[in-house]
Nucleic acid binder design. Structure first.
Lengths: 127, 127
DNA sequence: CCTCCAAACTGTCACGTGATGGTTTTATTA
DNA sequence: TAATAAAACCATCACGTGACAGTTTGGAGG
């Protein structure tokens, strides 16, 4: 179901669902056009989230707590997505490193040249 | 100067300065307690940002445009932060990989075992 | 002059809001 | 029935808002 129906069923605002999605608490499917699709599992999850909130937990804490187990189902896809994210970020960093003096960066980051080089190799493996 | 004075001089709200800071458009110094300190350079920068905005540019575009050069000064810190983020995410992924069948993950991710092993090595280098 | 305190200031969190620009669904009209 | 126009829905951007908690600072009293 789309965000409107989902939010109503969950008893929260669309903006709340939006927020949870942005911070990665909910991970809906996406249509080709970008529309989010939430399922029954998401519904159970958000109800649990609202429960935890009344217990005084912060969203990030809830995320950590929930992130520990419910990944058995579709962990492969999830890992795939995470890999994409990480790859993008590695790209960013390497981009920065190229614009900077590599040696100086290494010094300030307290990382050895080998590790930096290693990082670069890894990136090549994934691209 | 602190955010209040800075925002006033720039002719924008504190929230706007806050926003720019959150998305990395401004990178103020921080006191031990976390207070942000903006300097003269930041002032010139934010005025330029406001200018670019009137030209219809999005903040991310402005960031990209400005990001091309002004990183010489504090790029090390920036990279450091990114490294932290990436490290956390790598941790997450490896955590996931441990809970999953490594071989199956490799298959579904279309990544060779060597690359996965490599990833694990890298993680050890940074932890 | 030093101490203590309230007022002013600040950061972060968890959304809210209005504008803009696509997408989907529904209704209408040819 | 197919094309199209209108209405409803959705995503993202750029902040705004209110609550809460920690920080800084200008006095008041000792």
């Amino acid at each position: 179901m789309k965000i409107g129906e989902f939010a109503e069923l969950a008893g929260v605002s669309k903006r709340t669902v939006d927020h949870y999605t942005n911070i990665g608490l909910l991970e809906p499917e996406r249509s080709a056009s970008g529309y989010r699709f939430y399922g029954k599992a998401d519904l159970e999850k958000i109800l649990l989230i609202e429960q935890k909130k009344t217990e005084g937990l912060a969203l990030e804490e809830i995320k950590a707590e929930l992130g520990a187990t419910p990944l058995q189902t579709d962990s492969a896809e999830l890992i795939g997505k995470k890999m994409e994210t990480i790859q993008k970020e590695l790209d960013e960093v390497l981009h920065l490193l190229k614009k900077t003096d590599l040696d100086q960066a290494a010094i300030k980051l307290e990382i050895s040249h080998e590790k930096l080089a290693m990082l670069q190799s890894i990136l090549h493996l994934f691209s």
